[in-house]
Design a protein around this nucleic acid. Sequence first.
DNA 1: TTATGCCAAATTGTCAACAATCGACGATCA
DNA 2: TGATCGTCGATTGTTGACAATTTGGCATAA
Lengths: 236, 236
Amino acid sequence: MAFSDLSRPELGLGPVPKATLRAHIAERLRAAILAGDIAPGAPLTETALSTRFNVSRGPLREAMRQLIEEGLLVTVPYTGTHVAALSVEDVREIYSLRTALEIFAFEQVWEHRDDRFRLELHRRNEALLASIDAGDDRTSIGAELALHGLVFEASGHKLLQRAWHGLRGRLQLYWAAHHRAHGMRGPRRDSHDSYIKAALGSDLDALRLEIADHMRRGAVVTEKFVSGESRKGDKT
Amino acid sequence: MAFSDLSRPELGLGPVPKATLRAHIAERLRAAILAGDIAPGAPLTETALSTRFNVSRGPLREAMRQLIEEGLLVTVPYTGTHVAALSVEDVREIYSLRTALEIFAFEQVWEHRDDRFRLELHRRNEALLASIDAGDDRTSIGAELALHGLVFEASGHKLLQRAWHGLRGRLQLYWAAHHRAHGMRGPRRDSHDSYIKAALGSDLDALRLEIADHMRRGAVVTEKFVSGESRKGDKT
DNA sequence: TTATGCCAAATTGTCAACAATCGACGATCA
DNA sequence: TGATCGTCGATTGTTGACAATTTGGCATAA
């Protein structure tokens, strides 16, 4: 009958995500932080936020826990919570680990790169170029993350995707702070040409070098300024 | 005066860890799961646990969230929570990502391997050998994790350590389940000889191969049995 | 017999009040 | 004047009660 293949994944008929309050709160709070509506270092009190969102402190706390886990917030027991401020060293770590993970992701995908993968890579690059041309920095940050995220999605490696998500939030936090402090990040239009070429090529070692180089170029701004010095002794 | 050097780190006079209830609960619950006192797939109800630990559901929930984050628990809203059951694919992912991370860790440490590092590596291997001779599987699991954990600690790379912790919990869960199902894991006494030799050698490429091989040997048991098939559609 | 609708028990989600802790300010005393 | 100690306001930690949701079984009707 017509429903014999209801389980086809491409129809998007998987489980509907349950919407709990904490999920919504986490989403909005994350967006607010990454948009820079709340500056790094700014204190976030549970009571203030709970009234602002018009929810009780319970779900709010759980949402904050999640953002803490993602590296966006820092809390010290009985004292307070504030938006994470990345140190220069933190940014270095983000980029170095990111290099390792992205190379690993390509190793996983390498033999399985099909037309769909190639097409999607080009598509996301087009989207990035369009957002750059439009001068919309916020969108172009998302577009660049989407571009680099493709290989992680394509890997089908759930743990790897998880690690990437953990990194992505921190990266976004850094880019957002950097953008606020220096205006346009100003990625050149051709910044990903060699990356894509290597990603679709046949020389895995060349891609390894290209990724390492790509990250190095991205991380140099590190030295100029980051969102602030991280405080010492912060811990969950 | 006598207290002039109170800040000497070797005295262990650093900040006392704040003890919040959720931290204690998380610790004990984690221990109970990894010890196998609660079998994979077994349901964990908040009310039951809260009475068992004699705390309210608030801190208990937060502790459970943390274990969910660590991959030890799985929950579906409004329905229930159970101990995670790893699939064969999950175990494969754990080992493959672990390989990549451990190699990356060694790359970070490589130029900074000093006598202290070498000594500690030998010390932890001795501890592993002792626990194997003693036939104490539980201790030897901890000893093996400690041995492999050294390079992550030595790297000084906080994000990397974080990723390792995320992996370690899942690995421990797998080992514990495997041990319960098959008795002794039975690592041979010499299982880490070549690993340590390569780790202290001068050929980084050789170490890369050795780690990949070491993980392959560790992951073969995967095919025989894991703690159970994971359910589909589980998500936080 | 099969499908449908409904009910009830169990479980998690949410809330508002209370307790514990921290950091800073100011009083107190040498 | 300087340091020390107590106090106070603010913030997070914890609790117990209540609400929302899900699941499975059962009655019912086609």
